[in-house]
Simulated assay, not measured.
Amino acid sequence: MSKRSTLVLGTRGSKLAVRQSEWVQSRLRDIAPAVTVEIRRIQTSGDKILDVPLAKIGGKGLFVKEIEDALLSGEIDLAVHSMKDVPTELPAGLELLCVPEREDPRDALISRDGRKFKDLPLGARVGTSSLRRQAQLLQARPDLSITMLRGNLDTRLKKLRDGQYDAIILAAAGLRRLTWGHEITEYLDPSICLPAIGQGALGIEGRANDQFVRSLLAALEHERTRTAVRAERALLHRLQGGCQVPIAAHARLEDHKVMLEGVVASVDGKEVIRDRVEGRTEDPIAAGVTLAERLLARGGDRILQTIYGTAP
């Protein structure tokens, strides 16, 4: 195992991404005081295109590809991602070396006048860039006007305050990590809006053969979070979905069981297929694949073919 005195940690340049990376940097400082961890900001494709809905940009890995390229070339030694941005298939030679304990996975509503979701006025303008959120919100409230919202968290909050929206939907985890939890009007119940795959979790990626970095990160690993996320990502992989397709899943661990709930929805929210399974914590991938098959059999295949443009 090749020990080093300096490691370079790659991250997106957003305030949230840097905060998450600084948390990892601080923990590694406690674990290995003799190792210096430098943070390097890397602009990704998803950061460069801010005036187009993510679903129309296409492709997977919009927020990680350039960072993964830097890992493969040896420019950086590890990378901190929001797990919901990480494709289910990683490039050869890379691995998720560590999955720390998950933050709150729920979506959060922030409204301009403090109204909760059910109390938003008829036809209220709600900002989100996520087709997953759009579909589920329209099922619950078909009257809403769902409008594209891109940009970093502080940019999105400013647009709300400027009156461009009546409410916006953001991941609770990001707000809490930035100590902006006080901005949240309401945590949306998963029965209204099931979270994105991996939402609230971090994935620390590195080279598969880098035993030194792997050994340092071992202290941050949270086995229960990894198990839950593996079940969710297995479902996404079976459905061949990207992070911007109307697919949602959330896994909870109870005793020795994985309780996995999933959703496949049409973009307009008129058709939402929801189901759940119980699986074994020893085999979370099986739970994800089983639930995916059930969703496909109940009509999810037809919905996804329409979205992907492959319907006969």
Rank of each mutant, 00 (worst) to 15 (best):
E278W: 09
L295K: 09
D77L: 04
G127R: 00
Q164Y: 13
L295C: 09
E66D: 12
A32W: 06
L78V: 07
L304Q: 02
T128A: 02
R40I: 05
P53A: 08
L96I: 15
T225H: 00
R280M: 13
G114K: 02
G163L: 07
I285W: 00
F117V: 09
G174Q: 05
M148P: 07
Q211N: 15
R150A: 13
L220W: 02
T6V: 15
G114I: 09
I303M: 01
E183F: 03
L109V: 09
Q136P: 06
E232H: 04
L7S: 04
I76S: 06
R40M: 05
L236C: 10
V272P: 04
G61N: 02
L202I: 02
V24K: 00
R230G: 00
T11G: 00
A265V: 11
S14L: 04
E186G: 10
L50W: 08
I42R: 00
D69Q: 13
R274H: 14
V264Y: 08
A249S: 15
A251Y: 03
H81P: 01
R156E: 12
R41P: 07
P121R: 00
C98A: 05
R40Q: 08
I273W: 02
I285V: 13
I285Q: 09
T281Y: 00
R133F: 03
A34E: 15
D107N: 09
G203A: 10
P105H: 05
A234S: 15
M259Q: 14
D275M: 07
V277E: 05
D30Y: 06
V64S: 02
L157N: 07
D107E: 11
K257G: 03
M148F: 09
D30T: 15
A218M: 09
G241A: 12
